[in-house]
Simulated scan of single mutants.
Amino acid sequence: MEKIIEIKNMSFKYDKDFILKNINLDVFRGDFLGIVGSNGAGKSTLIKLILGQLKPNSGRLNLFGSPAWSCKKIGRVGYVAQVGLSRGMDFPATVGEIVMLNMYREIGMFRFPKKEHVEAVKRALDTVGMLDYINRSFSDLSGGQQQRVIIAKAIVNQPEVLILDEPTSGIDHQSEEILYQLLDRLNKEENITILMISHDLNKIKVHSNRLIELDSFEKEVN
């Protein structure tokens, strides 16, 4: 199996005290990895390290075979933050415009999107079941609908890995079920490797093929 992420004896601290210490983890292509742990255990910090936003104090963290903080293939990773664009957004932007934001590198600064960019946005919205809302104002959507649009934004560039930081936070039960069905489909049908932080052990246990508790990271939860 192809190893997407390799973490060996990695430790990280912001100041004096280590947030993560001697972490070991391998993530393989096709995994749906659930990450659980208590508040302050370093779950979001781990994600920032994988995304190359932080650099370990010691040990190794490779993404696609290269150190994550200098990986040139970071564009192959989609990311849905815990609290981000889908929270408290009230400026006038359509669903299509929100998803298009993630294509600025391809489009270029101060240039208009081409036909292929528009088609990519439509495909991403169709994948998450939100194509009919492409011209709707993002702020008019429910929390669950907004979260699906944010996932469309994360997958519009067809990433190989999708990382989500508690994406079910603040949405109702029905929207949560729809979201999990979407993630299952992306994982199984699109072969997208998924890493998802969750506070709901029972729920994530059902959908992930592997489950890691950060408080005792070397041990997988059965």
Rank of each mutant, 00 (worst) to 15 (best):
L131D: 03
V95I: 09
A93T: 08
D132M: 15
F110G: 01
V121K: 00
E97P: 01
V95N: 00
I107H: 02
R111F: 14
T94S: 14
R123S: 11
F110Y: 14
D132S: 11
E119V: 11
T94E: 05
Y104E: 10
I98A: 02
M130G: 01
I98C: 04
M109E: 06
D132H: 14
K114I: 09
M100G: 00
V99P: 01
V95Y: 01
A93V: 11
Y104L: 11
T127R: 10
H117Y: 04
T94I: 08
M130W: 02
A124E: 03
F112A: 13
M130D: 00
N102V: 04
M130F: 07
K122Y: 06
E97Y: 03
V128P: 02
K114W: 06
V118G: 01
M103N: 02
A93H: 02
M130Y: 04
I107Y: 02
V128M: 06
F110I: 09
P92L: 13
E119C: 07
M109A: 12
M100S: 03
A120M: 11
L125D: 00
E97N: 09
M103C: 09
L131N: 04
P92D: 14
T127Y: 02
N102D: 08
M130P: 04
M100L: 15
L101S: 10
E116R: 12
V99I: 11
T127Q: 07
E97S: 08
E119I: 13
A93C: 11
R105C: 03
G108K: 12
D126W: 07
R111D: 02
G96C: 08
M100F: 07
M109S: 11
V118H: 06
L131M: 15
A93K: 05
K122C: 13
H117R: 07
I107T: 03
K122L: 07
E116Y: 08
K115Y: 04
K115H: 06
L125H: 03
E116T: 13
E97T: 08
L101A: 15
V118A: 09
R111Y: 10
F112Y: 12
R105N: 09
E106Y: 04
D132N: 12
